[in-house]
Design a protein around this nucleic acid. Sequence first.
DNA 1: TCTTTATGGACAAGTTACTTGTCTATAGAG
DNA 2: CTCTATAGACAAGTAACTTGTCCATAAAGA
Lengths: 146, 146
Amino acid sequence: MDDALAFSALVLALSGQLVQEIHAGVSEQGFEDLRPAHGFAFVRISMGGATTAALAEHLGVTKQAAAQLVEELVRKGYVVRHPHPHDARARLLALTEAGWAATRAADQAAKAAVEPWREALGEARFSELVADLTRLTPPGPIRPAW
Amino acid sequence: MDDALAFSALVLALSGQLVQEIHAGVSEQGFEDLRPAHGFAFVRISMGGATTAALAEHLGVTKQAAAQLVEELVRKGYVVRHPHPHDARARLLALTEAGWAATRAADQAAKAAVEPWREALGEARFSELVADLTRLTPPGPIRPAW
DNA sequence: TCTTTATGGACAAGTTACTTGTCTATAGAG
DNA sequence: CTCTATAGACAAGTAACTTGTCCATAAAGA
């Protein structure tokens, strides 16, 4: 195996294509003020119990960067900040209805982007692929940039 | 299939991890002044016949961005610009010995990053995975950022 | 040939998504 | 009831891009 780099390039090209397709799908559904990185934030916020600091850790960026991102999402109406019930310093983040709508749009776009893969591979092979990737992927922050 | 987004997240997390591991491996071998994006440039330049404009198309960025990247790589001693034999406007890009050494380091790091996957999946499943990814990945620019 | 349009690349300035650094208020540990 | 850690705000700096403009050369059409 002396084409590890080629294999890596395959994975990276695939993920790049995936990001672009999802982003394009979300934009087409009217969410033109969202960038791919926002989607990763939505994932964490929709899980519940997210503070800005927790979001920063999930995204693998500094607190300040996460705070700027949250400020932008609040300004655009996708996120609201609630007071934290047990910590007067912290603010709990939550999605607005617009935020949930954008999340649904992203899921739909992801489905559309992945569908050709399912058809190309067949149901069985695709399931194996998903299982393999699940085994391979370690827990950790999802870094939206490199 | 209502977890297309989760599947997408898997692929993205995997590729992010891959990029970080390769970058870390390359840094440890002494190439601390290279970023992941440079690797994608090396891939195109090592293919031969690359001009700055061709590199820009390969990376999916503007000519100016590619020119800045090339300027940086030349300054750091990884790339040289030769006059183009048939076009007085263009300059042919080529890797220096340092450039080739960095490419070999990246390949070695990629091998190390991928090895655990081979072990976890077994040779047969891994080969299937590579074959599947090859079928799924369309030709196109490798975009180092989103 | 001679004009017209397209392309490779340089130069300059602007934008954006981050970073580091510093500060206040509150929380939790001893 | 101090002492240290953490959530977040505020400010400034930075790096990797972008848009805009220009020149020299190439390629295409009259």
